[in-house]
């Protein structure tokens, strides 16, 4: 007999109700139950980073997170980072500017990881960016452009903070 449990998940500022088997991961809940297919399934075992989302503002792998575990937490996916008018997030804009992808499959995970990486203060140099983005693999090998995009977005964020201050 298949058991299901009822969950209320807060995703991108909206409450979603769903009934799923307890073994359903956050990744499968997003993609298969809530039609939020921006989050990608790569390896499905915590090795590639394609499924990166934010839980309470921190980047995590949704393939190794049970949906049931994150009830009551604030979940953000790639669909939730654009501005109110649909403006691209500065990291998204930087990825386009630097052509930081080829096939694009790893890109949502790269962008979610980069947004958090900059917020954590771990984007201070190319070396630091490489180290703190190492959990996101790109099999097309767009790494140089990804580092350039993260560097530019990080510098723009610092500049913006200084101007606000």
């Amino acid at each position: 007999m298949t058991r299901t449990i009822h969950l209320s998940l807060d995703i991108n500022g909206r409450r979603h109700e769903l009934d799923v088997e307890p073994r359903v991961t956050l990744l499968d809940a997003l993609r298969e139950h809530l039609a939020l297919t921006g989050t990608k399934k790569g390896c499905d075992q915590g090795q590639c980073g394609a499924c990166t989302c934010h839980v309470d503002g921190k980047r995590v792998l949704s393939c190794l997170t049970l949906a049931a575990q994150v009830e009551g937490r604030e979940i953000t996916t790639i669909e939730g980072i654009t501005g109110e008018n649909g403006d691209l997030h500065p990291v998204q804009a930087a990825f386009i500017e630097h052509d930081a992808f080829q096939c694009g499959y790893c890109t949502p995970g790269q962008i979610m990881s980069a947004v958090a990486c900059i917020r954590e203060g771990h984007a201070g140099s190319d070396e630091e960016i490489r180290e703190y983005m190492s959990g996101n693999l790109c099999r097309c090998g767009a790494y140089n452009s990804i580092v350039a995009a993260v560097r530019e977005a990080a510098q723009a964020t610092v500049k913006e903070k200084m101007e606000v201050a």
């Binding site: 980073g49 703190y132 190492s134 959990g135």
Partner: peptide
């Protein structure tokens, strides 16, 4: 591990 795994 990676930054994501270290957060988990």
């Amino acid at each position: 591990a990676s930054a994501q795994l270290r957060n988990m």
